[in-house]
Amino acid sequence: MPILQADRLTLSYRRGSPVVRDLSLAIEPGEIAALVGPNGSGKSTLLRALARLMRPQSGTVYLDGRPIHRQPARKVAQQLAILPQNPTAPEDLTVRDLVARGRFARQAWWRPASQRDQAVIDWALDVTGLAGLATRQLSTLSGGERQRAWIALALAQEPRVLLLDEPTTFLDISHQLEIMALLQTLNRDSGLSIVMVLHDLNQAARFCHRLIAIRDGRLYAAGTPDEVLTETMLSEVFQVEGAVGRDPFTGTPIFTPLQSVRGRNGSEGSPDAASAGAQHAERIQQAGNYHAEHR
């Protein structure tokens, strides 16, 4: 049974036309799935609805088989954690104080933190590499450390599913890799299911088991990176002409954007761009061979 499932979701904000229309998808336990799509495609809205942060106009979200909107927030929080795109916290908070708040759904207000709470907080700090920074204030952290602190907060909920909205967008490349590797480790070691909105398609292809492409609020395609990351998808969903090759180092599909075809409706792409794409793919392949030979 899927851990998280959307059944014919239609989502809209008040006084607006639907942002997501009649969309169904299923997240299997233990997988990492990426929601990809251009700006305004509705992927962040979809993520919010999956996390019970907004009520669907129609359709149902099922968490572990039960309608998520018929369960209290506290109950859902014990199964599912969400990290929004740009969370803010009081800057004087220490890392440990922030992470400790992740235990809210599992604590009663009349009872102070138990030994088990403390143990989970320690684990969350440890696994995110923050044990040494536990007493630091958030204002003193770097962007990457900050993001890890927020992930640790989500982990302290002991969720089975973790949803993240663009967890790497504001980070430099090394911190991006650090976060993606951390999520991969959590998925492998703890069986945590992960759904995230990602902008970097190559990163999505490299770290996720499945890509879910959204166009204009509708599901365009869902499948393995190989199935979804195609030149056709790029042109139809992202309106970008590009070349898809294979990353010689990771073996995952990789794509190079060549030019935007926004506004050229129904364009199949110019022959020039197509040949440039082929050449480019070839070059990537050659680089990989070179790397393999000289390893």
Partner: peptide, 19 residues
């Protein structure tokens, strides 16, 4: 305690189980 959760913003607070 609830005010402390609310201080993390509406979305995070709701995600943590706060009404």
């Amino acid at each position: 305690g609830r005010a402390n959760i609310l201080a993390l913003g509406d979305d995070v607070a709701q995600g943590l189980g706060l009404r």
